[in-house]
């Protein structure tokens, strides 16, 4: 074997497979065209491929039936994932299954939190009970007439005015 052939020999198969870069491939093509020994090697690679393909086709074609049964066995061993899901959602009812839907649950939760945050920021309930100790601080005016006392005062945190009539109307 010539030196040139020796260097090409290990990559002749890759050349035959079309797996070499263009510049290298062109160089080998020129050599193979001119070299009977390398052409014979390419022929052997080609013949080997045909032989292997025929051998496999012969072995595997005989297994068509076995592969068909195998297919059925595989499908039998695969769990019914969809059916299980359907049973579960059936028990929960349509509303729960709706909330289970992941794409809706998360945005809804975030929206609900935002609405709650805005509500509690704006809303401040008026005090329902005014402590006695703080009444004097709020008194705006007091009027006394005919045994009755009228107190006017404002509640904390709002502009509401409260009129409180104290005393016995009969006296």
């Amino acid at each position: 074997m010539k030196d040139k052939c020796k260097s090409i020999h290990p990559i002749l198969g890759a050349w035959f497979d079309g797996e070499l870069p263009d510049h290298k491939s062109r160089r080998i093509a020129r050599h193979v065209e001119a070299c009977p020994a390398c052409r014979a090697e390419v022929d052997r690679i080609k013949a080997l491929r045909s032989l292997l393909q025929d051998g496999f086709a012969a072995a595997v074609t005989a297994e068509d039936e076995a592969l068909s049964s195998l297919h059925q066995r595989i499908m039998k061993r695969i769990p019914e994932r969809e059916t299980k899901n359907r049973k579960r959602t059936g028990r929960e009812g349509p509303l729960m299954s709706f909330f289970r839907f992941r794409r809706i649950t998360l945005p809804m939760a975030v929206t609900a939190m935002l609405v709650a945050a805005v509500f509690f920021t704006i809303y401040k309930p008026a005090p329902s009970v005014i402590k006695t100790g703080s009444v004097n601080d709020c008194i705006v005016d007091d009027l006394e007439s005919g045994g009755r006392t009228v107190l006017l005062f404002k509640t904390h945190g709002s502009a509401m005015t409260v009129i409180w009539v104290v005393g016995n109307p009969d006296t």
Binding site: L52, D54, G55, A58, A59
Partner: peptide, 13 residues
């Protein structure tokens, strides 16, 4: 024959 070919190739591999 085809059966024997299959066996030959298998043994070679």
């Amino acid at each position: 024959d085809r059966k024997e070919l299959g066996r030959v190739i298998n043994n070679a591999i």
